[in-house]
């Protein structure tokens, strides 16, 4: 489903915090993918590893990944593990 996020056009959107599903989307997608994180309460090490994999796959595929609805707490975690710069963020 293509959506418009103002300054960013997306080719696919992932609506659930299923990191595996998100990864599959990224593998199939072109352009940009939005991962909806608004339902993510607390991110754990496993999820972080999945996000790292997601970023790696996105790098290889040349797909941009945008995380939507990331809480301040999660954003801080991503900065601490230096993943912040590998995604873009949508409100």
């Amino acid at each position: 489903m293509a959506t418009s996020a103002g300054w960013q056009t997306t080719d696919a959107e992932v609506g659930a915090p299923s990191w595996q599903a998100a990864r599959e989307k990224v593998e199939r997608a072109e352009g940009e993918v939005v991962v909806d994180c608004s339902a993510v309460g607390r991110i754990d090490p496993k999820a972080l590893r999945a996000l790292e994999d997601l970023a790696d796959v996105a790098d290889i595929k040349g797909v941009k990944v945008a995380l939507r609805g990331v809480s301040i707490e999660m954003y801080k975690v991503l900065k601490l593990v230096k993943l912040g710069s590998r995604f873009s963020f949508l409100p």
Binding site: R42, I43, D44, P45, L48, R49, E73, M74, V77, L80
Partner: peptide, 13 residues
Amino acid sequence: RQARTAAAVFTQY
């Protein structure tokens, strides 16, 4: 790296 990840996750507690 493992400790860094754990520490980062721990900030949410």
